[in-house]
Design a protein around this nucleic acid. Structure first.
Lengths: 342, 342
DNA sequence: AGTATATTCCAAAACGTTTTGGGAGTCAAA
DNA sequence: TTTGACTCCCAAAACGTTTTGGAATATACT
């Protein structure tokens, strides 16, 4: 059907070898035949068959990304932005991006193993790391290229990009106290997620440094959804002595908490402070605009992707392990009045 | 490095052919050798090389999806849910999903053409169709398999799934009028998007049927982001005679409009009604909860994917063109008090 | 003239599969 | 004993590339 290199060779009256070498700029082919080959290939609409090229070069030029989804209504703006960051960078380098969606667990691991064993990808981007991360253990065990977004507990002898969310949450705690909110609660995700630990630790440190503390009764665990944040915030607000500040560990849960506070008729930013983490685009446009910790998700995606490609190509990485300093974004949900930075 | 079928063949003392046929359940191989082959293959950890298989079978077992992104901060919850729908269904059928992200235009078309010409995918999911859709023209022109989410203007001789958003917006218009809001505005996306036409047409029809109309000054065009909705709503609310209802053509823009109304101190659902379209998970948890038109995004993704796979495999489609009836989700942003459906 | 050196080319192997088109052996029926 | 059917097997071709390891010719230098 399609035009193959053999067809081109026949047409120019040269061997397949010569055509291939002409097209790849080898210098053992005369200027004359090179231009002829190029012309004919162009005319015939020759496009190399990627599969054949990849088989021969023993490389897939493909990156793998397994998105950890929870339930069908997977709808985390965080991931679409991260995906765009990876995807665009991958395209720049001529790599394909193979995406699959699996909830953490057996099927997820199966997706990784299958991709590795049947040689579908050259490397992985591992996202949302966990305390003891089976994906990373596996990939490290077989020495398969990957770069993680996030760290793990224990040995950190693999390449990653992470934000210093411990520091971010420390700043956030201090900000909350400074704004005059003293009964402070936190909604954290399942503690198996690595960033949960960092954010919670940082939050505790920040409170301690500002002379406060996080009481056990004010610590709630939830999934990372709005619904989860809503439910846990409702529990908190129904207590005898409800908190006057709720720090959620991501923006989505903060949105849920805001809704709960609204329903209780609380003036957010005055009677209660609510904070998030991530600074997804929506947080600026929420009512009220959300105080949160900025995470340059798109850039991180690009960075991770670039590191992975270098890794695959055996190029040395100038920085194997990147930790970014976060910055606070202060908005009305903690009582800060601002003309929003546009 | 990795175990090939040749290694297995050598080990069992049979030909490569026999091993291949044993592993694929052909009946011209004895029960004895079959079990032996299976055992040895298992022991040696043999996994067929996908690339080689695909080259030989002249198929890629891969679906293409090019997400139309606008700018780096691409963060549309709509797409992550749609992606999950496609991804999970593709996995069920053993297909890979190749994702790239490109803004509409030249680079986008290049992504399609490259994937087709270098034979990287067996078919495409085309999302967010446009009036005169170059992607569809191209794919149809070369008779390449695809299924669209959405229709186009003109001939509809290709497989698609779409929601009858015309009907949805008709219902919405009537609901708004019924709730007693009469100065009605609309924020629509660039008219090149096909669903913009349907939604706007439907909205006009609904208003007409309820004895109203959409004045030109109350029609604003925007991108599909929150920021856009916010800006256009501000323009509307700054008019001498501002509208008392704003129907946005997606939830994200509605969120932006809500923020604008909040900032004007308007009581949403009472002094002004605001509506969206899509019913992304967040719309239930917004403040106030958003009246919108439900679109089963995850299911549509799965449906489109399944249709595409059938198409690729040459199986007849029971339904080539699917149009789903939408349903209104009434919430507080139009003054409806509900115990939310959980 | 003979030898080295460029220059230009290509046959064949390789990547790892699946499929094609038989072949050899056994057994029962003619 | 031949014939036909059946069972089990396999060499070789094919998929479409790239790379290896020369070969052939022309040119330049002793």
């Amino acid at each position: 059907m399609a035009v193959t290199i053999k067809d081109v060779a026949q047409r120019v009256g040269k061997s397949v070898t010569t055509v291939s070498r002409a097209l790849h700029g080898y210098d053992d082919v005369s200027e004359e035949t090179r231009t002829l080959v190029e012309k004919v290939a162009e005319e015939m609409g020759y496009r190399p068959n990627t599969l054949a090229q990849r088989l021969q070069k023993r490389t897939t030029d493909t990156l793998g990304l397994v998105l950890p989804t929870f339930g069908p209504r997977f709808s985390d703006p965080f991931f679409s932005e991260f995906l765009a960051g990876i995807g665009n960078k991958a395209a720049d380098f001529g790599y394909d991006l193979l995406v699959s969606t699996q909830p953490p667990g057996e099927r997820e691991m199966h997706a990784y193993k299958q991709a590795v064993e049947s040689r579908r990808v050259d490397g992985f981007v591992v996202v949302r790391t966990r305390m003891n991360d089976e994906r990373i253990n596996y990939l490290r065990g077989i020495d398969f290229p990957f770069v993680a977004f996030g760290r793990t507990h224990g040995e950190l002898d693999f390449p990653f990009v992470d934000e210093d969310s411990q520091h971010g949450m420390r700043l956030m705690a201090q900000h909350i106290i400074q704004q005059g909110f003293h009964r402070v609660a936190c909604i954290a995700p399942e503690p198996d997620l690595m960033f949960a630990k960092y954010r919670l630790d940082g939050f505790r440190e920040g409170l301690a440094e500002a002379g406060g503390s996080l009481e056990d009764r004010y610590l709630k665990y939830s999934d990372l959804t709005q619904r989860g944040g809503y439910e846990k915030a409702n529990e908190l607000l129904a207590m005898d002595e409800p908190p006057t500040a709720i720090a959620a560990c991501n923006d989505l849960m903060a949105f849920g908490a805001i809704r709960a506070a609204h329903e209780q008729g609380l003036a957010i930013g005055e009677e209660i402070a609510i904070t998030g983490f991530d600074d997804i685009p929506m947080s600026e446009h929420f009512h009220p605009p959300l105080t949160t910790v900025n995470q340059p998700i798109y850039e991180i995606g690009g960075r991770v992707c670039e590191m992975l490609i270098h890794h695959i190509q055996g190029k040395p990485l100038e920085e194997e392990q990147v930790i970014l300093k976060p910055s606070l974004v202060l908005r009305e949900s903690t009582g800060v009045e601002t003309e929003e930075d546009i």
